[in-house]
Design a protein around this nucleic acid. Structure first.
Lengths: 97, 97
DNA sequence: TTTATATATGAATAGATGTTCATATATAAA
DNA sequence: TTTATATATGAACATCTATTCATATATAAA
């Protein structure tokens, strides 16, 4: 791995910035187990529907979560294995401190 | 991996928050190759000495970097392999997007 | 169609964060 | 001791960010 150019360092920082909020981490954490609709996420992590929805938008824009409609619910899940990997590596680091 | 409690989710978010700034990512990136003193870091990434020093303090508090004195220089390096792992996983994710 | 439920979103606000500037501290060199 | 160099740090400032509140939109049920 050589020196990264500035654009790439900004992209990487932007990625980690998304993981750098406890509401988003809680969302990712509950989605590790199951896909869930917005109101179930909100009640599981005890954060308002509006706040969850705002944060899901950020996770969606960063392509860290995907979603599908079912009736009048919208069911979210993690996009891919990378999200889980990054999350678990973070956990691991914390556990070793 | 089960549901994390709130304290742990906050710790994990705090960890990623540290990686979520482009100045700090640039610092980590140059330290991947070699240990470096503050002014060399500053000149390599083209950020003021003061800003670098402030950010090194944050990295130090999070135990992501360590340092040693040599003459009147202070030489910084990454604390352990976890930092590198997390950084590289971030790179990988970016490269695949 | 009316009502209820689920989700999204804009505006406002409070709090957090990164940089700069000035300066303090510490070590080395003269 | 004086001067120069390296680093750290506090204050101020501007910017960013997450939440709340109110409300819009959309789908389902009655």
């Amino acid at each position: 791995m050589n020196l990264l150019d500035d654009d790439l360092t900004i992209d990487i920082a932007e990625l980690f910035k998304i993981f750098g909020d406890s509401t988003r981490i809680k969302i990712i954490n509950v989605l590790l187990q199951n896909e869930l609709c917005v109101c179930d996420i909100a009640s599981k992590i005890n954060i308002s529907q509006s706040a969850v929805s705002h944060q899901l938008r950020i996770l969606k824009q960063a392509k860290l979560v995907k979603y599908r409609k079912e009736g009048n619910c919208i069911i979210y899940s993690l996009s891919d294995d990378h999200v889980k990997k990054i999350f678990l590596l973070g956990c691991e680091h914390i556990n070793e401190l």
